[in-house]
Write a protein that binds this DNA or RNA. Structure first.
Lengths: 134, 134
DNA sequence: TATAATTCCTATGAATTTAGTAGGAATAAA
DNA sequence: TTTATTCCTACTAAATTCATAGGAATTATA
């Protein structure tokens, strides 16, 4: 049970963007260097974050990425929901497709765990996380 | 972020054993059929559970598996700790090996999430789970 | 003692997912 | 027109997950 590198990278990049606080787009190249994330991999991640509306991009020279919301209004849950194919603890938790779902003794637990995790991750905003930096 | 099939199988098998409540060893064959888990895969899982001391095995004819503790004293956390290679939300959470760990703004969150999940899973005993069955 | 039913052990393999790479087209500033 | 950037599509290597396979060791019982 683990958060993927993609998810961890996404979170770190978003924190880095929040820490800058600026209105100037930050080029991927800088983010990649700063956070030591492979350039092309980060490119894919930024694309997903942009599609989800968490960042916006500026193309061409002097382009880059910017947060679309204030750091107080963007949570770890928002970000991880984008990059993690599923945030569910067990895939069953979503699942209408499991034939056992009607009588499965573990399903309620998985559902409850999902909620606990989601509630937890919602409590951490980018603003909170930036202030954690040493 | 997901619990593996192995972990889900393990939990279900342990619940099935708890539901029987008996002192007769239950052969893997029955568990496999009842829970629709591939026989040879379940064999591996039972071996791990046995090594961890959660079940004991009886070899030879009329052999099988038995819980070593009462269902009230065995939690979902105990079981998943055995089968999930890591229960940690992010691998960093364990990590002395990450060079960022000293200043990483996300590490405290991952650690806290681990604790939340572990506390949650500790609250579910096999006795609780058996009583959830329809 | 033979037989049948079981666990134990070791190895292998297929499918999926994850993490990363590659090359170039489109866009925009200077 | 050059340069710096994002955008798009495809590919690939490695790891992990989910099994499968075959037979050895052990034990009850007829």
């Amino acid at each position: 049970m683990i958060v993927s590198a993609k998810g961890r990278y996404a979170l770190r990049v978003m924190i880095a963007l929040a820490a800058r606080g600026g209105s100037e787009p930050v080029p991927l190249k800088e983010l990649s260097a700063e956070e030591e994330i492979p350039h092309k991999f980060l490119e894919q991640i930024m694309t997903e974050l942009a599609k989800a509306g968490l960042v916006e991009s500026a193309r061409g020279k002097n382009g880059g990425y910017l947060l679309t919301r204030s750091p107080e209004e963007c949570t770890a849950a928002d970000i991880l929901r984008v990059t993690e194919s599923t945030l569910a603890a067990a895939e069953c938790a979503g699942g209408g497709d499991c034939p056992r779902s009607k009588t499965c003794p573990t399903l309620p637990m998985w559902r409850a765990l999902d909620e606990v995790m989601d509630d937890f991750l919602k409590k951490y905003t980018l603003a909170d996380l930036v202030s954690q930096r040493a």
